[in-house]
Design a protein around this nucleic acid. Structure first.
Lengths: 221, 221
DNA sequence: TGAATAGTGTCTGTAAGACAATATTCC
DNA sequence: GGAATATTGTCTTACAGACACTATTCA
């Protein structure tokens, strides 16, 4: 009567070609064998320190990716979401730059734009939707999008990341004021982004102390 | 190896004497029998439609309270949090006015100010801390505190609720502008709050369409 | 009328966005 | 020099908070 299936699922998000994309893997077993779905797996009570460790383990085992940012999203549950029975999925979302995915050389990973997502097994579609909503919401007042921008980036690049997530053009002066106000960036001195026939832009990176935590804005972008 | 204990826990919060308080119940069984703890229980796979229903069931069975607001908080997990083994607790938090608790006539419920909380069994203390942090954070830019104010209330009363949660005095003019801007209140026409020797205040209530959902502010209080 | 609190009008300073000027690169 | 984009300066407007004035009740 208390038999509940307990799993973790991962929404791995990245930005490619100006579009937010989610990583899917073909399932290696039933149910839904060979159908693309979120990376996920059972909690291993004998080895996992908690659900977060289970999520990191699943991400590592299935995609060989170590993410700079992982946050618990929500827990999805019920008798119908998994044909095997009453189940609980503790969902996490991770943000990585497209380079991290390409360097992992995981040919099994497919990236699908979240706005053009097909139906998915289980309730994975609504898990993705929840993650995207959370990311978009947090982007309005935090440094979260920096994790999509990679190790180093210019302010114009970072602004395009924010704009892609928020779906609207941002004021350049305000954007720079806000990034400065958040104080989580440091100049890479003397280093500039590759330029065309125009002035190159200063490169920045996240300060070490903000690699693991977010900065919040008092009043949003 | 995949044997995981699956439970829900409830952080029932209310405001009494200007202080945020959490409802605790003496546990009716081992482990920690007779020790005050959060209301909680196992998921019943044979009757619960999902974890949210399980939380509502637990709240009803243990306190006879039906809450106007219930939100999933986070999921806590690990091998050590429960002496019975590797466990998952899907935590929810609920907000009720003090009247609701008093009308439920649940003498077993004890209210403890969250800022003076003793150590609790399991990881219930950190669950409470997480809930309080979430509530305080959301209070800055949403209508969430209204659920602590009861069925009807005056604007000065509501402002005191917000101030108690945010721990700072708020500007009266701004506060009224913001509440008006959120547009979730309606006047109870001709009805006024009980007054002393001074002008009585207009009574308001949440509009029907906001009874189940929050309104958000663009820029916080 | 005086005390107390509710509710509103108005001013001021701050911050956000618009606009534009300057800077730097490659051709 | 011209094209393109980066970076910074400045002006305008909108909004948050301060202050104070009016309103309403009871003693």
């Amino acid at each position: 009567m208390n038999q509940v299936i307990c799993t973790v699922d991962l929404v791995l998000l990245t930005l490619q070609a100006g579009e937010l994309q989610v990583a899917l893997l073909k399932r290696d077993r039933e149910p839904f064998k060979d159908v693309p779905a979120l990376p996920g797996g059972f909690i291993h009570a004998d080895e996992d320190g908690d659900a977060r460790f289970a999520a990191l383990r699943v991400l590592r085992e299935k995609t060989h990716i170590a993410t700079p940012y992982l946050e618990q999203l929500a827990t999805f549950s019920g008798p119908a979401r998994d044909p095997r029975g009453w189940s609980v999925s503790i969902a996490y979302y991770a943000l990585v730059s497209i380079d991290v995915i390409q360097q992992a050389r995981q040919d099994q990973v497919q990236l699908i734009p979240v706005d053009k997502l097909m139906p998915l097994p289980f309730d994975h579609k609504s898990i993705v939707d929840t993650a995207v909503a959370r990311l978009r919401s947090k982007s309005q007042y935090s440094s979260l999008p920096c994790y999509l921008a990679g190790e180093s980036f210019t302010l114009p690049q970072l602004q395009r990341v924010y704009e892609a997530l928020m779906g609207e053009a941002l004021n350049k002066v305000s954007f720079r004021r806000k990034m400065n106000e958040m104080g989580m960036l440091e100049e890479l001195d003397g280093q500039f982004g590759a330029a065309g026939a125009h002035r190159p832009a200063q490169l920045y990176r996240l300060k070490q102390e903000y690699k693991e935590s977010l900065t919040l804005l008092e009043r949003g972008l």
